[in-house]
Write a protein that binds this DNA or RNA. Structure first.
Lengths: 260, 260
DNA sequence: TTGGGTATGTGATGAGCATCACTATTCAGC
DNA sequence: GCTGAATAGTGATGCTCATCACATACCCAA
């Protein structure tokens, strides 16, 4: 039973930016209440009973992240916590053998991140970075497993989340293998559209570099495609922010490839 | 509580082969005992208590599969059972929007298959086909979830299995995106090597077509690469069977790509 | 044994996209 | 506001690999 929970950040950050570790105190009962109140209705943590949730929160650490802060480094051996995102956006990425960055996902609030390493206790295979200022809960392994395995509802929730991820990855493999650039980028954009809004805004405004690493194509071609789509009115740009105007078209492209 | 368990096979088989449905009776106590005895030491089902296991088996259906028999069809709506492979080998694959087959995995005995659809209750996104004569247990959704969620050990086991799969898929995305043909094929072969033997035999002898669909390259190039590797002594062929002679080399290639 | 289906071997061709090279633009920090 | 760094736009080039087009080998069943 540990009451405080220390995070050690090691290794090299992706951007080799200076790393500022902001260790919050552990969430006390007060903040626990606050957090409970702000949990989204569809939150995974809602599956827990109030008592379980309170216990879990009491053992968790809350972290405020600035843009660029690194929560987890690929290669870290001390993979002893999972991350529950309260607000903001995280990037999950790794560096391939060839030295190129591959972005696996962007996570939105109320999503669980980094639980894979808890389950098979290997080193971290991906890095987790805040791409906008974010708030996150760090759940220690023991508490996480204990809580999850005593709550049938949350067990199914976590398994469901893992299942969703497997499906998602199957789709990525499909588009990587059989789709041309356009549909691949379309799929990336569709995944980035903020589901909580209806105006086609993204959960985060990626650079073309990031979009390329996410969709699996060269930055230059991201540029070319975006220009083309903008001229066709499929997307719009406000400054550097992207707006998806014709989501339906992009979804078709993402699902059926070039032969829509 | 249902005691018998009916499987409906619908849709079009991948090879459009005639489909023979062999419905076994449900496993009775006798066969349950037999099955328990033959479970591998590392089996997921070993996490269950003898009573739980017996209950699970009593509600399961045992299926004997001939080569080519289809257990699950991509698109099936009645995704209400998972598959536990007792012996043989299964192919998990789907047909992409472009009409090409993508092989996600080959599963070896004691592996769980098809549990994704149980968790998020969508249609089946992949097909499962026996590639050699096989024995499998079909576990109905309700029983599966009930058993799993009442056994903390097996919960963790199933989550671990899902986690393993996510990791595996991350690697596939990596090699698809950044590796050239050689390393991609190497990774496919490494995944196919039978871990229960030490002579470099594969768990199943795929056609070059299948190898291509598994590794993500054209059949013709599979042929070219295999010939090259054979002449270098990295692999050998006995008739149509492949033998991995220099597993270490292939593993290096699979891990680091061309720049080993 | 023969023939048709399936699996394999191998060259030639070209499409798709990464890469390079460079310019133009935007942004953050002093 | 200024300056260097990061981001973005765009043409030219060439490499990798899918595709096409065959030839060949193999297997099983009539």
């Amino acid at each position: 039973m540990l009451d405080t929970f220390e995070i050690r950040l090691s290794g090299v950050t992706l951007e080799s930016a200076d790393l500022v570790v902001v260790l919050g105190g552990n969430a006390n009962m007060d903040t626990a209440k606050t957090i409970i109140d702000t949990l989204a209705p569809d939150s995974l943590l809602r599956a827990l009973s109030p008592e379980q949730l309170e216990r879990l929160l009491a053992k968790s650490t809350r972290r405020s992240l600035k843009k660029g802060d690194v929560l987890i480094n690929q290669g870290d051996e001390d993979g002893d916590f999972a991350v529950y995102l309260l607000s903001g956006a995280l990037k999950i990425s790794f560096v391939s053998a060839g030295g190129r960055e591959i972005i696996l996902n962007y996570s939105a609030p109320n999503e669980l991140v980094g639980e894979i390493a808890l389950l098979d206790s290997g080193p971290r295979t991906a890095s987790v970075t805040a791409v906008v200022p974010s708030e996150a809960l760090l759940l220690p392994t023991s508490t996480f497993l204990e809580t999850v395995s005593t709550s049938p509802a949350s067990v199914v929730g976590v398994m469901r989340e893992l299942a969703r991820r497997v499906r998602q990855l199957n789709l990525v493999v499909e588009s990587d293998r059989t789709f041309s650039m356009g549909p691949r980028l379309a799929r990336a954009l569709v995944r980035l559209v903020d589901q909580n809004r209806d105006d086609g805004q993204l959960i985060y405004n990626p650079s073309q570099n990031d979009l390329g690493a996410f969709a699996g194509l060269a930055r230059e071609n991201v540029s070319r495609l975006l220009s083309e789509w903008e001229s066709q009115g499929i997307i719009a740009r406000e400054g550097r922010a992207l707006l998806v105007r014709d989501a339906e078209y992009l979804e078709l492209l993402a699902e059926f490839g070039d032969d829509i």
